[in-house]
């Protein structure tokens, strides 16, 4: 458990750096600064980031296939498991809450699960199921559903 937590923390820290780096790379080609040995080890395991992230038919299908089991087909938090969970699944069409979350928080909730961002453990981690590109596009899709951006 302790090892797991340490591992998770390291990944979150690394991820934050990666996300930041990705945001910057939108303006130009990736920086030529040589990465540290640790970064190289981690980066080689990551999939390349999409630039820019888009919602595609694949994104919608991914949402329908996995997320709608709890979040519902239209993202209203009314999937078939919803009533059976101790904490209701998030309604992705409600801007009031989702605009208080950053894209990074949504990304982490999907990748590492609800607990990683201090939310319900009912939301599992999809880190070994979905590529990072897919998770980024899901974040964009949630933004589309709520018709909102982070404040």
């Amino acid at each position: 458990m302790i090892i797991n937590r340490k591992f998770l923390l390291t990944r979150i820290i690394l991820l934050t750096t990666l996300v930041t780096a990705c945001g910057q790379s939108e303006q130009a080609t990736p920086a030529a600064k040589p990465p540290t040995q640790q970064e190289v080890a981690e980066v080689t395991q990551q999939t390349p980031q999409p630039k820019p992230v888009q919602v595609t038919e694949d994104t919608r299908q991914t949402y329908q296939w996995y997320c709608s089991q709890c979040h519902g087909i239209k993202g209203k938090g009314d999937g078939i498991n919803a009533k059976l969970l101790t904490v209701p699944p998030r309604n992705h069409t409600k801007a009031a809450y989702l605009e208080t979350r950053t894209d990074e928080q949504l990304f982490e909730a999907i990748k590492f699960g609800g607990l990683s961002v201090g939310r319900a453990p009912c939301m599992p981690a999809w880190e070994h199921t979905l590529e990072e590109d897919a998770i980024h596009s899901l974040v964009r899709y949630i933004r589309e559903l709520c018709d909102c951006e982070a404040l």
Binding site: C70, N81, P121, C122, P124, A125
Partner: peptide
């Protein structure tokens, strides 16, 4: 940790059925 209960019914320690159905 794994959130299995969100989609699978199982028995809690008191022998009650709990969990999702997808």
């Amino acid at each position: 940790t794994f959130g299995c209960i969100s989609c699978h019914q199982s028995l809690n320690l008191a022998g009650k059925i709990r969990g999702g159905i997808s």
